[in-house]
Amino acid sequence: MTSLLTRPLFHGGAARRAVVASLLALCGAASLSGCGKTISIGDSSPPATSPSPSAASSSPSAGTSAPAAGNSALQVVDSTAQDAGLNGNGGTVVGAAVQEAPPKWVQLSAVTSAPLSAAHLININQAALYRFDDDTAAPSQSACTGACAVKWPPVTVQEGGNVYLAGVNPKQVGAIRRPDGQVQITVGGWPVYRFSGDGKPGDLNGQGLDGKWFAVGPTGEKATQ
């Protein structure tokens, strides 16, 4: 008997189905809001024995240091944006479109799909999310800047924004400040990205590229068959 519940995540015949962890297993009889957490920029989820990552961490390839982190925090909410009464996509974009401004909120959902049976994460636009082997999780740092970040846009969010979850433990979610000052979400300590080559729901065109890019699982692991 499995502890995961499967239900449709989106209406309109979307091919994917969410794999949502049992809230009772995570929170007992607590309310949904009691399962969330507030994180400061720079928080991540490395092993307990690892030192806390610096909010001013910069990519090893960056030529300038990151701006100092502010005091604005993010709220991680263990329920969906729809449950919070929100419509739309929070300002996220699709495919190769440039994210001109960080979205007001982001949703991370664990799903399975026909090309990848392992649970992996998508955003509210049903875009697959990825991790990069050249990054580090403890401390959380991104090695993808410049042209790399154009091809692999980081998953960013406004300071003070919300991260909504479906099938992801709030303890796995953190955030770092990138060299350009933007706030990037991490899962299991790993910075997460979209792929500009994914143009429609269900695309996983970035899976395995260069032997370093893989769909990211609910705890930051590589999602592979």
Rank of each mutant, 00 (worst) to 15 (best):
L121S: 07
H120R: 06
N205T: 10
A215F: 01
H120S: 07
I39N: 04
E100V: 11
P191D: 03
G181H: 02
A84N: 01
T224C: 07
A97L: 11
V111W: 03
P191F: 02
G28E: 08
C144Y: 02
N169L: 08
G13M: 09
A215C: 05
K222T: 09
P60R: 00
A96P: 14
A29C: 09
V94K: 14
Q158D: 11
G161T: 04
W105A: 00
A215V: 06
W213Y: 10
N71R: 13
S59E: 00
G12M: 12
S142F: 01
S61L: 13
Q99S: 08
N87P: 02
V173S: 05
T156Y: 00
I124N: 09
G199Y: 08
T64C: 11
Q75V: 09
K171S: 15
S65K: 09
L32R: 14
S72M: 11
A175G: 07
Q172G: 10
Y164D: 00
T186P: 02
Q75N: 12
A149M: 07
G206V: 05
S59W: 02
A138E: 12
F10Q: 13
A68L: 12
G95L: 01
D43S: 11
R194W: 06
P103N: 01
Q141G: 03
A175Q: 02
R194T: 12
G217V: 03
G91V: 01
H11Q: 14
A149S: 12
A62K: 00
R17Y: 15
G202K: 07
A143C: 10
W152T: 06
S59C: 04
L4Q: 12
T6M: 12
M1G: 15
A14F: 09
P153Q: 07
L86P: 00
A127R: 15
K212G: 10
P102Q: 05
K222C: 05
K222G: 04
S22W: 05
C148G: 04
P218H: 08
P67K: 01
A175S: 08
P115C: 03
S44D: 13
A223K: 04
H11Y: 14
I122T: 06
G90H: 04
G189C: 07
P115W: 03
F132P: 08
A128I: 03
E100P: 06
A84S: 06
T112G: 07
G85S: 03
A166V: 06
G146Q: 07
Q107T: 00
Q126Y: 09
G85I: 06
Y164A: 00
E221W: 06
H11M: 14
P201D: 03
A119W: 08
V216T: 03
A118L: 04
R177V: 02
G208W: 02
V150T: 15
A119C: 11
D134N: 13
R7T: 15
C144S: 05
A101L: 11
S45K: 10
G36I: 07
G36W: 10
G70H: 04
S22D: 15
Q141F: 08
S65C: 10
Y193Q: 07
P170I: 09
I39A: 01
S3C: 10
V163I: 12
Q99H: 04
S61K: 09
R16K: 09
A29R: 14
V93R: 11
S140T: 09
G13L: 12
S65D: 12
R194V: 07
G90C: 01
S109T: 13
